[in-house]
Design a protein around this nucleic acid. Structure first.
Lengths: 329, 329
DNA sequence: TCAACTGCCGAAAAGGTTTTCAGGAACGTA
DNA sequence: TACGTTCCTGAAAACCTTTTCGGCAGTTGA
């Protein structure tokens, strides 16, 4: 920067002001400085800036989501919202290990990140990082157990409702729900939304109960077989995940039931690799994670210096229609 | 740090030396300083350190791999190899857009990263970032077009060979190969490895040709149908990706051909969500990306300050046996 | 003519650490 | 007692930028 200043024939102080758009510098001078800077392709040392301004322009994204299935869209949303040139993201994967998480946390704090986004491995609530952290923290996807923290999650109940609503609009009346592990709050919430929406139509869930089990194709297959035995005239199945939905369509296909002609199937998560390649491609509920990441970034940005809200904010899912659902003729 | 020094009754200089394990400080003094530091839970300001030492302890991971399918394992390998507390990783997703890539690159350089790992979107070679960067750069997964750069890629030819070798060991003789887009070097390389290994046994590829097409389940299904028509007695299929393999087993199943009883199937990539959930679970070739990440980290670490090698280094894949292949009785 | 003001610019401090170098204490030796 | 060694310790410079504040020149108003 000394070189830039020298080349432009000004002092470093003036050069700094020119480059940062401070008003107390003549337009012509500023022009000269800019010119000099680009000529030397100068880029300011962010560490020196951080030292003086107390702002690092970095945030930490602390995840425990092995696959990157949920973290990546959130990361992308956050990157969008922070300008690329303003803020960079440290991605740390704790791999579900709380010791590793503490480790990463220490490292991030030592790097003086301006804020933290914590993405859980599963959508249930997770332990708080604590209240007395020196930077704002936002919990995304998995809410914090501490209601004093700010958590951004997707609205599972609303999503369940959305799925069933779509099936009803397609003219289906005998709607079953096959979903994952009952110990997941998300499974319970989606089921509740689904059952509630059915009740509004005066319907009950087909097969008499919600089929809780596992988040796997195999369970989707097994549950579908049981379901068909108990309730052979089912005309729609709401699967709690796209994986499960894959299992469901697989068995329907095996049983020579047309999808969506005889049975409509809707998944959940919009995991493209599974859903878009299925036969037929799966209608599903998208979790809208990019939006979640964007909002996390905005909140964080607004909170830097100030204070963050608290509580749990829910984000609605989004219906993605493909071919596995269609109106009954 | 002043506070730590004061609490320990020494000067900041001594405190610094004590904390950094410099030899010129008495053991008892060091002990006192450590004590004081942990009591105040002091963590050094990495920006100040960066400023003085010219080392930031950060690397950039610049990716264009939307899904995070390949970047994430590489990231995890790299994280393993750098100690968590030593080095942190900036993850930037360029989304296949070279302008965005330049942008990220500028930002990373401005942050004075110690090194860069570039992960391409597809395994073919990609443009170099340039020779005159101020930090060492390693290209992982997708090699650089410039042979002066150092690239770390997986050995596709070896992988194809490995897959066919396994099928031969299972006693198969009529082995077909269905794979993706012929414009991908990786597809060509895998096919070459496969054909070569067959030739060593005096065999040719079943169906008379390698079936190039697309990296999708749908192509896997279509190609399998064509293959069965032309060559109904095929006893093994090597699929160029797990996605394709899913399509393959789907059609075999439909045709009432037992997998692996009548036809063995092997995939490629070890994309767990697809392979492990298939019916039957897919034998596949793992790309060994974590190792690739680890080695990238080591090379980078070694290169910081010094200079990097150049050329393309290939890493062998790894056979993962599940149930879709088995010896012919 | 002089005072007050405005608009630009530069000197210097500050931010938190590492590293060099000079000096002080303790000790042994002559 | 005087002197040379060996260890430790601390003062200060350095890293690079931002920001405050004082100063200078030119302009306006009385």
């Amino acid at each position: 920067m000394r070189d830039v200043a020298r080349l432009a024939g000004v002092s470093v102080a003036t050069a700094s002001k020119a480059l940062n758009g401070q008003p107390q510098v003549r337009a012509s001078t500023r022009e000269r400085v800019m010119q000099a800077a680009s000529q030397l392709d100068f880029s300011p040392n962010t560490h020196a800036q951080a030292l003086i301004t107390q702002r690092t322009g970095t945030v930490g994204l602390l995840t425990s989501d092995l696959e990157g299935r949920f973290s990546i869209p959130i990361l992308m949303g956050a990157e969008d919202a922070f300008g690329t040139d303003q803020t960079s993201v440290f991605l740390c994967d704790a791999r579900g290990d709380s010791i590793r998480e503490r480790h990463h946390l220490r490292a991030l704090l030592s790097r003086r990140v301006d804020g933290l986004i914590v993405v859980g491995a599963r959508p249930d609530s997770r332990p708080s990082l604590g209240r007395d952290l020196p930077v704002p923290v936002i919990y995304a996807y998995a809410p914090s157990e501490d209601p004093a923290d700010l958590s951004l999650v997707s609205d599972n109940e609303g999503g369940g409702r959305l799925a069933v609503d779509h099936l009803i609009r397609c003219g289906r009346r005998r709607i079953a729900h096959i979903t994952g592990d009952a110990t997941y709050g998300a499974a319970q919430d989606r089921a509740r939304g689904a059952v509630d929406r059915l009740a509004e139509e005066g319907l009950e869930v087909a097969g008499g109960e919600v089929w809780f089990g596992m988040w796997s194709e195999a369970w989707g297959r097994g549950a579908t077989r049981m379901l068909l035995e108990r309730c052979p005239d089912v005309d729609a199945i709401f699967a709690g995940s796209d994986e499960i939905a894959r299992g469901v369509v697989d068995v329907l296909h095996e049983e020579r039931l047309d999808v969506p002609g005889q049975v409509a199937v809707i998944g959940y998560d919009n995991w493209t690799i599974l859903g878009a390649n299925a036969r037929p491609p799966l209608t599903t509920i998208d979790l809208n994670l990019e939006q979640l990441g964007r909002v996390a970034a905005q909140r964080l940005f607004a909170a830097i210096g100030g204070t963050l809200g608290s509580g749990v904010e829910k984000f609605p899912g989004k219906l993605v229609t493909r071919e596995s659902t269609a109106p009954l003729r």
